[in-house]
């Protein structure tokens, strides 16, 4: 719906879905939206606000927030792989 590449916008909701999150640190522009939406998965470095990945394999109850973080990331620095 939003013209995204689809990584963060999948509809793989359901039991047994595993999620792996990757962040592209050089791309990050420190907008902070991922920290706002999924604070248990993303944080920011103190010195420059750049993304820190706290949980590479977040539990299923956080999957929707992680997907939303990837969709709103202005720099496309969050990649979500679901199996």
């Amino acid at each position: 719906m939003s013209g995204d590449k689809g990584d963060g916008d999948g509809s793989g909701e359901g039991k047994g879905v595993t999620m792996r999150v990757e962040v592209d640190v050089p791309k990050c522009v420190a907008s902070g939206q991922c920290v706002m939406i999924a604070p248990d998965v993303f944080d920011q470095r103190e010195e420059d606000g750049i993304v820190v990945l706290l949980d590479e394999r977040p539990p299923s109850e956080l999957h929707a927030d992680v997907r939303e973080s990837a969709v709103v990331c202005p720099a496309a620095a969050i990649r979500v792989v679901e199996k």
């Binding site: 522009v29 902070g32 920290v35 103190e46 420059d48 606000g49 750049i50």
Partner: peptide, 12 residues
């Protein structure tokens, strides 16, 4: 240059 001024705007 932008990264010189991002720290104070971090969410926390």
């Amino acid at each position: 240059i932008r990264r010189m001024v991002t720290a104070p705007f971090a969410i926390k």
